[in-house]
Amino acid sequence: MRGQGLRVLVVDANAHIRRLIATLLGALEITDVSEARSPSAAASVLAEHRPDLVVVDWTNDPVETLLFVHRIRRGEGADRQVPVLALAASTHHAVLEEAREVGIDDVIAKPISAVDLIHRAAALLDERVNGRMALGAAAQ
């Protein structure tokens, strides 16, 4: 897929991980990447940046992250349909179940595999772009 014109928000406390993800997204030709150190700091970025994908660390402050996603799904300051990819400590079935319940679209376990991250980001962005095209076609 080609990600030109798409926007991604990366939320992680660690600057090196944020930089890693932003750099890797370049492989999908995505250059419009905004960053936030925490879910609370991300709230204003979300409203301003209107991302097509949110990549959020779920290990630093799990409760704050869940509240952040919950607010997105309620449409607070964001498109409630924006896909969310979470970086978790594990992909144990209980984690995946909790993710599904709160509205996280996909989960990757840390330490992340760069190729896996990009594959999953591409899949979520692809679904979003195709969903938009389908909506546009239906409106016509």
Binding site: T23, G26, L28, A114, V115, H119, A122, A123
Partner: peptide, 25 residues
């Protein structure tokens, strides 16, 4: 990761990712 997703990214992007990881490493 689905095969569908892997195909959508393509070998070129996967190669680019590998190079980026090498540099960042």
């Amino acid at each position: 990761m689905s095969d569908r997703a892997a195909k959508k990214i393509g070998d070129d992007a996967t190669l680019r990712v590998a190079r980026m990881v090498e540099r960042l490493s």
